[in-house]
């Protein structure tokens, strides 16, 4: 899933300073699961903004709605009326959702309430970790199902680097993923596979090649 985190309230409130009636739009998918932009967070943000603005001379009206998925036109069609009523839309979805909203409502000012972090998952309640770097050409079959592209601080494909100590990465408080890859490959009896040099990666399949687009003509209708 996409993991995101809410921006600071201060940052959000500054972005809506000049608006009097805002639609706060949640998304029922990933950002609900990672407790960043679901129905609950929509309610809290809306109330917080009202509480703040009530104290000054410019109170704010909030409209609240949470759709099934912000990254799909049909769900945005359902909020057309609501969107019309507002002077601006605060999207509490990931960056994809925010852009869908902006594209679907071209005359509305759209504000992102979240910082989109990574493709990952929850490892325990309240903790999320990155798992995939969306490199466009998966190599997990070579690394025992553990991704060095996303999880090695230097995205090294022939690791570990010299900074790996006692299973910890030289960077921050993270595990050295190459340590884990080696341990897993050892346990699976596949060390010889790691002795093969992984050649330079084709980053053109990743974001480096420009924005990516997938076309499946076999499923397109008319």
């Amino acid at each position: 899933m996409i993991v995101a985190e809410q921006k600071s309230f201060d940052e959000i409130s500054k972005m809506v300073e000049s608006f009097d009636k805002v639609l706060i739009l949640g998304c029922n998918e990933c950002v609900t699961v990672c407790l960043a932009g679901g129905e609950k967070e929509v309610g809290v943000l809306a109330t917080s903004l009202r509480l703040l603005r009530k104290q000054g001379d410019r109170p704010i009206t909030t409209l609240e709605e949470t759709v099934t998925r912000q990254c799909e036109w049909e769900y945005l069609d359902q909020i057309e009326k609501l969107a019309e009523e507002a002077d601006c839309i605060i999207s509490m979805a990931c960056g994809v959702g925010v852009q869908y909203v902006a594209e679907r409502f071209p005359d509305k000012w759209v504000i992102p309430a979240l910082d989109t972090k990574c493709a990952g998952g929850s490892v325990k309640h309240g903790q999320w970790e990155e798992r995939c770097g969306m490199c466009g050409e998966c190599i997990l079959h070579k690394t025992g199902g553990i991704c060095p592209v996303a999880r090695c601080s230097k995205r090294i494909l022939n690791g570990p680097c010299g900074g790996s100590q006692n299973g910890k990465c030289e960077v921050k408080d993270v595990d050295c993923i190459w340590d884990q890859i080696y341990k897993r490959m050892m346990a699976l009896g596949r060390m010889d596979q790691l002795l093969e040099i992984e050649p330079e990666k084709n980053w053109s399949k990743a974001r480096d090649g420009g924005p990516r687009k997938l076309v499946r003509e076999d499923v397109m209708i008319g």
């Binding site: 601080s153 995205r155 090294i156 494909l157 022939n158 690791g159 680097c161 040099i197 050649p199």
Partner: peptide, 14 residues
């Protein structure tokens, strides 16, 4: 930005 287009082993090979 963190480049690491290639790693040290790939660099050696290049």
């Amino acid at each position: 930005a963190n480049v690491f287009d290639v790693d040290s082993i790939q660099l050696i090979r290049i």
